[in-house]
Simulated scan of single mutants.
Amino acid sequence: MLLPELGYLRRVGLALTGSRAEADELVQETVLRALRYFGGYKGDGFKPWMAAIMRNAYRDRRRPMACAVAADDQQIQGIADSAPDPEQQALAKDNSTRLRGLIAALPDALREILVLREFAGLSYAQISVALGIPVGTVMSRLSRARDDLRIAWLADDDKAAS
């Protein structure tokens, strides 16, 4: 049950930490905690349960976040590599770096929900279970996170144009 989810856990770990090494450590810690507390698993959904463990392990570390996006530079460049124009590739890399910075600047509560929804692919109900909050709160925080991200992106555009 756990082995098929390791890729998923690594993606979530990368989204939370922004570092492969830290993500691997976080996955390892999450798996150890899951094994230790498996008796408390109620069968409500394995992914949300694991996401909640990972979130708690991450918070316990109390390390400042360097980046909050689950895509490392190679993955983002892989998307941009389909464009033959080096200028477009450079622009895509700049945009991905900019997006990572803007996501990292979101408050923890908003960033966590955005990462769990957009990068971990959890449903609203699964996020609700993972974070222990009502579905309505998940929906409102996700909406606010998206709005704040859009506003920050546009403000950054305006600042760059000036």
Rank of each mutant, 00 (worst) to 15 (best):
P107S: 11
D44P: 00
D60L: 10
L102T: 01
A52P: 00
Q75L: 14
N95I: 07
V69G: 12
M65W: 08
P86V: 03
A57L: 03
P86L: 04
C67P: 01
P64G: 08
Q77D: 09
R111Q: 09
I79R: 12
Y58A: 14
E112R: 02
A52D: 02
D73I: 14
A71Q: 12
V69H: 11
E87Y: 06
D85Q: 10
G40W: 05
A66Q: 11
A52W: 02
D94I: 01
I53Q: 06
K42M: 11
S82E: 13
G40D: 14
E112T: 15
N95A: 15
Q89I: 06
D108V: 07
L91H: 04
I53A: 06
D94F: 06
M50N: 10
S82H: 14
D73H: 11
A90N: 03
D44F: 04
P84Y: 05
I76Q: 13
P107I: 02
L106A: 09
G40M: 10
R63P: 00
A68C: 15
P48V: 06
D60I: 00
C67Q: 14
A68N: 08
R63Y: 03
I103A: 11
Q88D: 12
Q88I: 11
A66V: 10
A92F: 13
F46K: 08
I53L: 14
W49N: 07
L99F: 13
V69T: 13
M54S: 04
I53P: 01
R98V: 00
G78E: 10
I79M: 14
L106Y: 02
A52I: 01
E112K: 00
G101N: 05
T97M: 11
M54I: 06
D108W: 05
L91M: 12
P64L: 08
P86A: 10
P86C: 07
P107F: 04
D85F: 08
A70L: 07
K42F: 02
L91I: 12
I76R: 15
R61P: 00
F46G: 05
D73C: 08
A105M: 00
P84L: 10
I103L: 14
G101A: 07
L99A: 15
M50S: 11
R111F: 06
A104S: 09
I76H: 10
A51N: 05
I79H: 07
G39H: 09
F46D: 00
G78I: 10
A92W: 06
W49P: 02
L110W: 03
A57I: 01
W49Q: 04
A104Y: 00
P48T: 04
A52G: 15
Q74K: 15
G39S: 09
R63A: 14
D72Q: 09
D108A: 12
D94Y: 05
P48A: 05
G101I: 01
D73Q: 12
L110N: 11
V69F: 13
D60T: 05
A80C: 08
D73A: 15
K42I: 04
Y58T: 02
E112I: 12
G43Y: 07
A68R: 12
A80Q: 02
Q89M: 04
G45H: 02
W49T: 04
D73Y: 06
N95F: 07
